[in-house]
Design a protein around this nucleic acid. Structure first.
Lengths: 248, 248
DNA sequence: ACAAAAGTGTTTGTGTTACACCCATGC
DNA sequence: GCATGGGTGTAACACAAACACTTTTGT
């Protein structure tokens, strides 16, 4: 988020809402692990921050979140939902920016940071938290202008995030756990066709606990939203599992 | 909310966050009905709006919501929780204000509305929705400067609200229904001591459906948070019910 | 004694958990 | 045949709904 503010400052000051931002917790799933997409800033100081940005005067907050998501992942149609607003008075990037300016001489010139820009950027910000579920295989990661890298991190092994971003991830995960059963939203994390085992392992990753194989299958099938397809022959020395798809 | 914006404009422009507001759905309970506190503006045009306001630079969003709540009800310690952000691009009071200025000649002078103030006030606003649960008996209703009245309306019989405030009430009620069981938050709507019947009737009002008397009692007592007190003798020709209190 | 409403117990059904068993597959 | 993992069935249990009955209170 912090560096996106630079980007913003260079655009028209009134193109966006002021002191209001959007931060996205983008969940992926791979190798039986729930992951979060986190860019690292191209600066000395090891700064990791959730993908975030500002809200244009001409777009709704949902559209802003979608745009931010698409700008990093190339994906547009996706499961995306707000989960909480973070509005403590101390939510400001002033300390962070001061540290970065100290560690990175020439940074102010590099980003054309004027005194007004400094004031603008270091004000208190209220941030709307969104979380998204994406199929990692469909994502084309795009570094933004100030990104050194952008990578998936297991949700239990995140780097040290700025401000209250760690708290945002925790809240997003809580909300995901509450909502995943309601509409079976988890399928957004999986490829179109998947086995029951893959679905179960996803749940185990999300809830960080095991589920009984047979009971899980019964529960999922009883929901009546899964469509059984052909079998998947992997060449392994065991019975071939069915593939499933979510029925609309 | 609309007239609070006037109030704001007359104060320092930078005392509050811009284009960001808080709107409160304040629930009460009386005569077996769930009610919502709604002020009516002292203007020609029949304008009802949820109690709302702005966020001072020096207070958190939660504190802002508490302040707004206290300013109308005199209550400070209360159950209060954000439930959703409303951020469509059309969220602006321009049409509403234009209509009010047409219907109320002299209004602009009355509120000292300058052209800059008009611009400021009719911009798009993002609003954070909070809902509160209060014991109506402890509330001392306070009209604000531009209130013609402030009253409790049954949630099913609300007057026509401005902008998307009706949608806010609907969302708040949904969230209340989801949360009332989690922590038994409903007790905020009742007096300190209450009978099982009163608790049940509250639930029936919130969910707009009947609950079986015996099963409801069993479920509530099994939660282990109710403390049974003395009996309540009403003088009615029937067995006296126990009074209960929520145990910390 | 009676009506009204509170309190409590019993049965039924449903869903969850735990355990067991059979089936398909490739070596 | 056998190891491996998938599919299904059943008993035990907990929870919720439906039904029934008893107790208290004032007239």
């Amino acid at each position: 988020m912090a560096m996106d503010q630079f980007e913003f400052y260079r655009s028209s000051e009134h193109e966006h809402l002021q002191q209001l931002s959007v931060d996205c917790v983008i969940f992926g799933y791979q190798d039986q692990k729930l992951t979060v997409l986190i860019p690292k800033l191209d600066l000395i100081g090891d700064v990791w921050a959730l993908p975030g940005g500002f809200i244009r005067q001409t777009e709704s907050i949902d559209e802003a979140a979608l745009r931010i998501l698409a700008s990093r992942t190339g994906i547009n149609a996706i499961y995306l939902e707000q989960f909480r607003v973070f509005g403590e008075t101390e939510r400001s990037s002033r300390k962070l920016l001061d540290r970065l300016l100290r560690l990175n001489p020439g940074l102010a010139e590099q980003v054309a940071l004027s005194p007004e820009g400094y004031e603008w950027i270091t004000r208190r910000f209220v941030s709307i938290g969104y979380y998204a579920l994406v199929d990692m295989r469909k994502v084309i990661l795009k570094k933004q202008e100030f990104d050194a890298s952008i990578d998936w991190y297991p949700v239990q092994e995140l780097p040290e995030l700025i401000l209250d971003h760690q708290e945002m991830v925790t809240h997003a995960l809580e909300t995901l756990r509450l909502h995943i059963d309601r509409q079976l939203v988890g399928f957004n994390l999986l490829p179109e066709k998947f086995t029951m085992r893959e679905l179960r392992e996803l749940y185990e990753a999300v809830f960080d606990r095991p589920f009984a194989r047979n009971n899980f299958q019964k529960k999922m099938l009883d929901l009546g939203v899964l469509e059984r397809l052909e079998k998947k022959f992997t060449g392994a020395a065991n019975r071939a599992p069915f593939l499933y798809r979510f029925a609309r």
